[in-house]
Design a binder for these strands. Structure first.
Lengths: 115, 115
DNA sequence: ACGAATGTTAGGCATATACCTAAGTAACTC
DNA sequence: GAGTTACTTAGGTATATGCCTAACATTCGT
């Protein structure tokens, strides 16, 4: 039986994985207010810079942020479109029309039992 | 300097982590069409059942699905509200008003260069 | 050119994740 | 009550993740 994995699954894998960490979500929240350097982004965290840089790379490889190095400063920017893509994946199932129909079915069944 | 992590971050951690895997996203997609047993859910995947069950547990601990055992069958259902909560987190930053302003700035700058 | 600022690379450690096989347990089915 | 079904538990391996320190590279200010 073939595996159901689709070829583009890694984009979602990386995207959601990138969001599954408070530090990285903090970076995104900060970048939503405008661009920032790595040092600026790292400042609130009690973490060695190399460790923090790893998080930045995870975000960049997920496409959630882009960075440019100018002189010795690397400036980071939020890539809202990629974030939107993740949101779209969720939205497709979040609507939950089927789930609601199931629940409606349950409710009707229960009504039938008691009346 | 204090760490910025908020106390409830584990809910988002677990939620997004749960979505960061194609098998688990497949389960969600399937459950969006209605309830299903573990065996039903596992059928499309070329994976030992214990391995698959781990994925189910990850989803359940993230609150993305709920399960009930009736007799020897465990039935799984999508918890759309939790999915919606993740979507809400993304939506807050996806809007990207700040990012758009930045880009608008870039565009205006470039216009200024060429005209 | 010298020192400080801003990353970056290299290497290492502890825990978590994703998979497996083998061996249960509990509940229908006959 | 014996077998089959549908999980479940136990235990093991390989890789990935998240953190660290130490040392290097580059650029900026004076």
């Amino acid at each position: 039986m073939p595996n159901i994995r689709s070829p583009d699954s890694t984009a979602l894998d990386r995207g959601f994985h990138a969001l599954a960490d408070a530090t990285r979500r903090g970076v995104i929240a900060r970048l939503a207010q405008g661009e920032a350097s790595v040092a600026d982004l790292a400042a609130p965290y009690d973490m060695a810079l190399p460790s923090f840089l790893q998080h930045v790379r995870v975000l960049e490889e997920a496409g959630l942020i882009s960075t440019v190095k100018t002189g010795r400063v690397r400036t980071c920017r939020l890539e809202a479109e990629r974030l939107a893509a993740l949101n779209r994946w969720i939205a497709e199932y979040e609507a939950g029309w089927a789930a609601r129909l199931d629940r409606l079915g349950d409710i009707l069944d229960r009504k039938g039992d008691t009346q």
